[in-house]
Design a protein around this nucleic acid. Structure first.
Length: 574
DNA sequence: GTCCCTACTT
């Protein structure tokens, strides 16, 4: 809130006017101080008064900073009246505020500012609308987006291509694909960005068919078009198609329709997407090979490229390579490691079982470790059964991310595996006390364009009876192949029979069985899971791929698993 | 001064 003085002051009818006529003006030290320290809206009037008194030209103040500081009401009104006299491009100042809000952490503030702009006699331009729509995209505020779209039409900006692209993107990112498509179809003029937006959205929906049709149809392609398609194939578990397209992109070269420097910038993204994609598909060697090729043709990696490399090493346990890349990022490429890089390194060390080293690494990091970093250590403690360090990690996680159920579950699991049932129960009690609930596991699978959802233990699927019957049949075959249910992954304190039943109702098993009975033989099955696949399901899926002769692609929270002929692409390291 | 792509852990 503002102090009453600022709120209640009535501006004089003739608002003090300052122009830029003082050419040889020398600022005194107080003015310099006021200018360089202006960061409080309460002070605007005082500063303004001082400027009038000392005949300081208002342009001495950085007006964009004033706008930023005073963008909230009621300082807004005062700043607006002040700007009116000094800057005939006042809207630009507010636009840059809108932009900061829309792109930063306060898109709601962008809406408030837009309302203030509309309330005074200021005319929004295409930029104003563009930033306001961007705020809608960020907040997934479809209703507000529609209002601003209407405003765009009303103000007569409806043929502005930049603006229309922003609106198409807003509709698409808010999930209103019909509106996005409708606008796309109606647009008289489209550029490569328009097409890229549509392609990207379809790839995000997993509809690679439509995305590909658009990609083939578009009159010209930019690096981003290729990147969107490649990333799309990676995300939906088709690394082969991604690689094929990547090679095609290299062979085709890219049309010079973006400034050269920018093109080079962008192509780092394609390479990084491809490297990261190969990494989460467990093709570490391929990812590292690609990186060598990229370096050879002179494309410099950025921070994201390095994350891809570290991920690749992490998913395959390539400890020495990981260390090497982490060291070289600063030494050879001048990239300062961010928290994400530290997260990858802790993950790499922890997974490999170098838990003490990982702990030391965390203690010596120059930036404050976040929950991801401690979570990575905790994950390693689970795999390598280290109760002591697990407890250390959870101590920090309770402070950093107390409501995240995943960490408690892992710790409880660590205790359970060590046979410390009382401690495991204590963790579960703690969760109850704090109101933290375990996220139920669910899997989804699309069959003939319909997305089927399976929740662990759930019997609500229309084909539940059939699924369970098929599972019983499959179970015999699995056991004949040597499958032994791994009940240790069931955290609940119950007898072995009950545990087995819980295990047999895991969502990914239900999904796979449903896939087997509802698709023709040989069809690959694609499943998404919200959590990480459990060890038992992983073992079962390997065998099912062998028995059924099907490829099963499972995208879990962490990475892709591609099961084929009894083997998983993660090589059981995950 | 504007629009679209890549990214850590559980």
């Amino acid at each position: 809130m503002f102090p009453a003085t600022l709120c209640s002051v009535q501006l004089p009818p003739s608002f003090p006017k300052l122009t830029q006529q003082h050419k040889n003006f020398q600022t005194d030290s107080l003015t310099t101080h006021l200018v360089s320290n202006f960061n409080c809206p309460f002070e605007l009037k005082q500063v303004h008064a001082h400027f009038i008194k000392t005949k300081t030209p208002l342009s001495t103040l950085t007006l964009s900073r004033v706008a930023m500081v005073c963008s909230s009401s009621p300082a807004f009104d005062y700043a607006h009246k002040m700007f009116r006299h000094v800057d005939n491009q006042e809207i630009v100042l507010w636009n840059s505020c809108l932009r900061s809000f829309a792109e930063g952490n306060s898109p709601i503030e962008a809406f408030r500012l837009l309302r203030r702009i509309r309330l005074v006699d200021l005319f929004p331009d295409t930029f104003t609308c563009s930033f306001a729509i961007k705020a809608c995209s960020k907040l997934l505020a479809l209703a507000e987006g529609r209002v601003i779209h209407a405003l765009v039409e009303k103000l007569g900006f409806k043929s502005d291509l930049f603006l229309l692209n922003t609106i198409v993107h807003m509709y698409a990112s808010c999930g209103a694909m019909e509106d996005a498509c409708c606008l796309f179809t109606r647009m008289v003029e489209r550029d490569v960005v328009t097409w890229n937006i549509m392609i990207t959205q379809f790839t995000k929906l997993g509809d690679m068919g439509t995305a590909r049709d658009l990609f083939d149809e578009m009159p010209m392609r930019s690096v981003r078009s290729w990147t969107a398609m490649i990333a799309g194939y990676v995300q939906c578990g088709k690394p082969k198609e991604a690689t094929r397209l990547f090679i095609e992109m290299e062979e085709a070269g890219v049309e010079p329709n973006e400034v050269f420097h920018e093109m080079e910038e962008r192509s780092v993204v394609s390479w990084s997407a491809m490297i990261g994609g190969l990494a989460i598909h467990g093709q570490a060697e391929e990812a590292l090979r690609l990186f060598k090729r990229m370096s050879k043709i002179g494309i410099r990696p950025n921070g994201v490229t390095i994350i891809g490399l570290l991920l690749a090493c992490s998913h395959m346990g390539l400890i020495d390579e990981g260390r090497k890349y982490f060291a070289s990022m600063t030494k050879d490429y001048g990239i300062i490691p961010q928290i994400e890089h530290y997260g990858c390194m802790v993950d790499l060390l922890s997974r490999t079982g170098l838990l003490e080293e990982a702990h030391e690494f965390i203690k010596n990091m120059p930036i404050k470790p976040n929950s991801v970093v401690w979570g990575a250590l905790l994950g390693g403690c689970k795999v390598h059964k280290n109760v002591k360090l697990g407890e250390e990690a959870i101590k920090h996680l309770q402070e950093l991310d107390p409501l995240n159920d995943g960490y408690y579950v892992v710790l409880s699991n660590i205790y359970a595996e060590a046979g410390r049932w009382e401690d495991a129960a204590r963790v579960r009690r703690l969760m109850r006390e704090r109101g933290v609930k375990k996220t139920p596991g669910w899997s989804t699978m699309a069959v003939n364009g319909v997305v089927h959802e399976f929740v662990a233990g759930d019997g609500s699927h229309p084909n539940a009876q059939e699924i369970y019957e098929k599972w019983e049949e499959l179970l015999h075959k699995l056991k004949a192949k040597g499958y032994v249910p791994n009940t240790s992954v069931v955290l609940l304190d119950m007898d072995e029979n009950e545990k087995e039943n819980v295990l047999y109702r895991h969502s990914e098993k239900l999904a796979v069985v449903f896939g087997l009975i509802s698709t023709s033989p040989g069809t690959p099955l694609r499943i998404m899971k919200n959590l990480r696949v459990c060890e038992d399901c992983h073992a079962a899926l390997k065998l099912i791929s062998e028995i059924s002769g099907r490829q099963i692609v499972l995208r879990d929270r962490n990475r892709f698993h591609s099961f084929m002929n009894g083997i998983c692409s993660c090589k059981d390291y995950w």
